[in-house]
Structure formats: C-alpha cells, structure tokens
Computed example of a mutant assay.
Amino acid sequence: MFAFLRFALAGFVILTVIYIAVSLYSRAVRRGKLGREWDEDIRIGDRHAYVEEGLRQYDRSLRRKLILGVYVVPAIVVGTIIYITNYM
C-alpha cells in the first residue's frame, strides 16, 4: 500500500509539473496569436488591453479546461492497467 501511495505522489508531482508547463506554453501561444491578430487587423486602441481581454476570454474557454486532461488521462490508463492485471 505504501508503495502505491509513493507511486501516486510521485506521479502527481510529475503531472503537476507537466500541467504547469503545458499551461504556460498554451497561454504564451495564445498571447502571441492575439498580438499578431491586433497587429494585422485592428491597430485601433491599446494593444495591451486587447491582449489582456483576449487572455481573460481564453481563461474561460474549453481549451483551457482540456489541459486538465493531463491529470485525467494518465489516471484512467493506470487504473485500467491495474484492473486488467489484477482481475482479468
């Protein structure tokens, strides 16, 4: 039991690092796209305000929530492997 808890804790830490990296990368890509969009199309008003408003919308988007799959998918895979190994 302690081996599983140690494995689960290590996995959670690794997945947290991966989640933070993917989240920061995705946000940086979105910020770049918003900046390029403003440069090419809009050019009226404040660029910084436009990008910040776009990032606020991004924070509420489905794409942002899908990044939580970093936790869900590995847990389902490990659970399935454990079930198949022990009960089939």
Rank of each mutant, 00 (worst) to 15 (best):
M1V: 07
M1A: 07
F2H: 09
F2S: 05
F4M: 11
F4W: 12
L5P: 01
R6F: 05
F7H: 06
F7W: 01
F7K: 04
A8Y: 04
A8N: 01
G11A: 09
V13G: 04
V13H: 03
L15H: 03
L15T: 01
V17L: 15
V17R: 13
V17M: 14
Y19N: 02
I20F: 10
I20M: 09
A21T: 11
V22D: 05
V22I: 12
V22Y: 01
S23D: 10
S23F: 04
S23G: 15
L24I: 14
L24G: 09
L24Q: 13
Y25W: 03
Y25K: 01
S26E: 04
R27P: 05
R27S: 06
R27M: 10
A28K: 03
V29M: 06
V29I: 11
V29C: 06
R30H: 12
R30F: 00
R30C: 08
R31H: 05
K33D: 03
K33N: 09
K33S: 03
L34M: 14
R36M: 03
E37N: 13
W38A: 07
W38P: 01
W38H: 09
W38M: 06
D39Q: 03
E40H: 10
E40M: 11
E40A: 12
E40N: 12
D41Q: 11
D41S: 14
I44E: 10
R47N: 13
R47D: 03
R47T: 00
H48D: 14
H48A: 15
H48S: 11
A49G: 07
A49K: 14
Y50R: 08
Y50A: 10
Y50V: 02
V51I: 13
V51R: 03
V51S: 02
V51A: 02
E52F: 10
E53M: 11
E53L: 13
E53Q: 15
G54S: 10
G54E: 09
R56T: 08
R56P: 05
R56M: 10
R56Y: 09
R56K: 15
Q57K: 13
Q57W: 14
Y58R: 14
Y58F: 14
Y58Q: 14
Y58P: 01
Y58L: 04
D59I: 00
D59T: 11
D59Q: 15
R60M: 11
S61L: 08
S61N: 06
K65Q: 15
K65F: 05
K65W: 05
L66T: 01
G69Y: 07
G69R: 05
G69M: 11
V70P: 00
V70M: 03
V72G: 00
V73Y: 02
V73T: 05
P74W: 01
P74Y: 00
A75V: 00
A75D: 02
A75Q: 01
A75S: 12
I76W: 02
V77Q: 00
V77Y: 01
V78T: 05
V78S: 08
G79W: 09
I81V: 10
I81K: 07
I82N: 01
I82H: 04
I84P: 00
I84W: 06
I84A: 04
T85A: 10
N86A: 12
Y87M: 15
M88L: 12
M88T: 04
M88A: 08
M88I: 08
M88H: 05
